[in-house]
Nucleic acid binder design. Structure first.
Lengths: 250, 250
DNA sequence: TCATTATGAATTGCATGCAATCTCTTGTGG
DNA sequence: CCACAAGAGATTGCATGCAATTCATAATGA
């Protein structure tokens, strides 16, 4: 049970106060909230998601909800079987093997584009985030590290100034992020990741587009290796446990 | 005036990967058919698309239609304004400037992956398509050339064996394809494009992944230049005309 | 004449209802 | 005891209805 799972319900929105974002329609709001629920892991992969449950949870009727389900299915977060309802898409090793190279290509492109457009100030901001991230690394604070890490990649993506690219990136990132609960970085991996980030920052500061692209691509490749090993190790020990949700750590 | 009301029996196999079941639901079928209508240019960019019209056209009620509209909007083919209905998304020069680099990155990745997996037989098939395309080039048969061209890129994408990548690629390709009506290739550009395709085939046959990636990326970049020049030339002569009707000349 | 407003029609957003399909339990025969 | 079938209950797919918003057109006033 989460905090205030109900939308405004029947009470018609009076545009005063309560709405932070200018989200005008119910289905758009539902898409956003359901996506969060899935990406944040509250709705575990493989879970069946009956319309009725969600309708009650959000206090809406089935029509806008179903519209939202269709959108999320087209994003790959849900699987929709005709007459059989929606299930949260599972994330198999095969899926990750597909997703990471694409992420790598998109991030590499973002890096290239960013090199051509980024301002000194933006670089300074990223540098600040970077060293804060390094601090969390030295303190072994994984959740905070993840948050900063994600933030840095997000900044580079923004600096690329290509909304289409950013949209695709975020879509993939949302799918992949669900895997972070199951990826246990070894000490060595973590150190290497930080080193790579150091190189990313350096290439970005020098506006060395080809190098940044190469590093980012490799960075994603390594990330995949980490996740894959971790996943395979878990498969060996606890085969069915991925159905249950590990603790919320990030 | 419902054209072809038997939507259900269609069984389109556009499925990349996991969709084994034939399309049985109305909204899925509607998504596919509406997408075709938009991509093929039958629904011109900027056109308002009232639900009522589409309902009559397809002989369905508003519920499944609206579900389809939401999905197409999330793909970027439609723009949905709250309480104001759907319009076919316009394709501005700025949009193309965003789309082509992403396409380039995705195709480059596809080329790389394909080099690692493609069979001799698949290469032979692509070679056959290539030379048929060249034939159409020598005969100056643009529509047929386009078709074969598209087919070749599609084959490379398939050979990459990455359904996620393919899905993103097709989504972008659908959006970009609508621009082909307005892109007039000069003789020199066309020749160069064919040369590039020659190089693509060569790199693929040698499984030279880095080179293929480089060529594909450049190929897309050149394509963008072509479209851009053509578009700017048209902007010069008929500044506002693209708002009303793009010429149907495929 | 032009700008502004008022009013009715059309369109959208959402809720609800009904038929078709699926699921799960119970019962029957081998 | 197991396999299979039948039926009730639940769930999905789609159509329709109603309220709210937008759009179009006419009317009013400066």
């Amino acid at each position: 049970m989460r905090d205030d799972p109900h939308l405004d319900g029947h009470e018609r929105l009076t545009a005063s106060g309560r709405e932070r974002i200018a989200r005008t329609t119910l289905h758009d709001e539902l898409v956003a909230r359901l996506r969060d629920l899935i990406v944040e892991g509250e709705l575990a992969p493989g879970t069946r998601v009956p319309e009725r449950i969600l309708c009650e949870r959000f206090g809406v009727s089935r029509t806008p909800l179903r519209e939202a389900l269709k959108v999320l299915a087209s994003e790959g977060l849900l699987e929709l079987l005709p007459n059989r309802g929606a299930t949260v898409a599972r994330l198999t090793v095969a899926d990750l093997e597909e997703l990471f190279p694409v992420m790598g290509a998109l991030e590499a492109l973002a890096g290239e584009l960013a090199c051509a457009r980024i301002s000194d100030e933006e670089i300074a901001e990223i540098r600040a985030l970077h060293y804060q991230m390094v601090l969390h690394y030295t303190r072994r604070e994984l959740p905070a590290y993840f948050r900063l890490n994600q933030s840095i990649h997000e900044r580079i993506m923004t600096a690329a100034g290509n909304p289409t690219l950013a949209r695709m990136y975020r879509s993939l990132a949302g799918r992949i992020r669900r895997a972070r609960y199951i990826a246990n970085m070894s000490r060595a991996r973590w150190e290497r990741a930080v080193e790579e980030h150091e190189a990313i920052l350096d290439a970005l500061a020098r506006r060395d587009a080809p190098r940044l692209a190469r590093i980012l691509k490799q960075h994603l490749q390594n990330k995949y290796e980490t996740v894959k090993e971790s996943l395979q190790a878990q498969d060996g020990t606890a085969s069915q446990d991925d159905r249950r949700r590990p603790s919320h750590s990030a």
